[in-house]
Design a protein around this nucleic acid. Structure first.
Lengths: 141, 141
DNA sequence: AATGCACATGAGAACGATTTGCAAGAAGAA
DNA sequence: TTCTTCTTGCAAATCGTTCTCATGTGCATT
């Protein structure tokens, strides 16, 4: 478990950027640092409430916005479901969504990253960010 | 302009699948057939109302759902904006979203298509569908 | 440790896109 | 034309998310 380190890194990064560390933000940050899945705002509220019952849903959303603006979390907006969140400690990756179970698997392909940049450049664009979601089902095998 | 043909193809496809062609659906279909952009539900209501003022927003949404289920339109859910719709007459393609203007540019890359399938297969998955959106900005040049 | 002020919070109302319940209307097979 | 089933308009309901506003609280400064 590297939760403690991960938490510290995020809190320090935020402090450096002048973001106030409140009780509620500590609770939410530690939940995010400990998460190995991709929780949505409601799930984060449940988990953070266990640490600090005073956390409200509004604050979860507000905090997530702040964390996103400061680059410590990323918002994942999949189709038709509430946004999910993950810390940005992991390098960039894309997602495979299991259409049968809803599971989300992460992957990364340098080839695809490079191809995307090439295509954009050809069309006169420079990529700011992208989303590549593969909706798939398990192979029988 | 191939609107008429495009319209006929869609209506026939729907009839074949037992979908009732109502006045409202005719209006919405013809708007979709004529569209060269990616309108959202509200914009479709405005355009369809010009043809048949009895069309309501509920019907636009309900019709779009039916059309999507029957494969004649595709729903494009970009981040933070209402869903956009396009007819499925064009072959599959991905999108570049100009983050400054909101413009949507279509493109297709066989290489990327193939890579995606490969990656999914490696992880034991078979792609059902995917979305690749490049949020980009124009190159200065 | 106490102070001050800008910023954060909880509760709930507001929002915007989309969906739904219901009674009335119409498509299309017979 | 008739009958059955599906569709519609309208308004209300949903649902994720954001906002309002009165109250609390980090934390730089004493």
């Amino acid at each position: 478990m590297v939760d403690v380190d991960q938490y510290k890194i995020m809190e320090d990064a935020l402090r450096d950027r002048g973001v106030r560390i409140t009780r509620q933000r500590q609770a939410i940050l530690s939940v995010l640092a400990a998460a190995t899945d991709h929780p949505d705002a409601n799930e984060l509220l449940v988990r953070a409430s266990a640490i600090d019952p005073s956390v409200s849903l509004s604050t979860v959303y507000r905090t997530l916005t702040v964390l996103e603006e400061n680059g410590v979390v990323q918002r994942l907006s999949f189709e038709g479901v509430p946004a999910k969140f993950e810390t940005t400690d992991a390098p960039h990756h894309d997602h495979i969504i299991d259409v049968e179970t809803g599971d989300v698997i992460e992957f990364r392909s340098e080839k695809i990253e490079k191809l995307q940049a090439e295509i954009a450049a050809e069309l006169g664009y420079e990529i700011v960010h992208h989303r590549l979601d593969l909706y798939a089902k398990r192979l029988e095998n």
